[in-house]
Amino acid sequence: MSFLIPCPHCGNRSVYEFRFGGEVKQRPEAEAPAEEWMEYTYTKANESGVQKEWWYHRSGCRQWLQARRNTTTNEVLEAFFPQ
C-alpha cells in the first residue's frame, strides 16, 4: 500500500501521512429504529470499487477530509473537505 492522496490543503501526499477514518455514512436520527442504528454501527459496505471515505491528514494539515477511492486499485479519484 503506497498510494497517494491529493490532500486539498497540502497536495499529493503518501497514504502513510494519513489515518483511515472509515466509510462515509449518514448518522441516523437519535430515535431512529434499532435496525438503522445497527446498520450504521456495525455494517460496512466494503465496496469493491469506488467508495467515499474519511481520511485524517495526521502528518500534514491535521484536518479531516473525504476521498473517493477505488478499493480494488487504490486509485484516489478526488479528495475534498466536506461542506
Binding site: 489515518r19 477514518g21 474519511w54 485524517y56 495526521r58 491535521r62 484536518q63 479531516w64 466536506p82 461542506q83
Partner: peptide, 14 residues
C-alpha cells in the same frame, strides 16, 4: 490523546 483530539475534530466537521 491523538485519538481523542481527532475524534473531537471529526465530530465537529460539517
Amino acid at each position: 490523546l491523538d485519538f481523542v483530539e481527532q475524534w473531537l475534530e471529526w465530530w465537529l466537521v460539517g
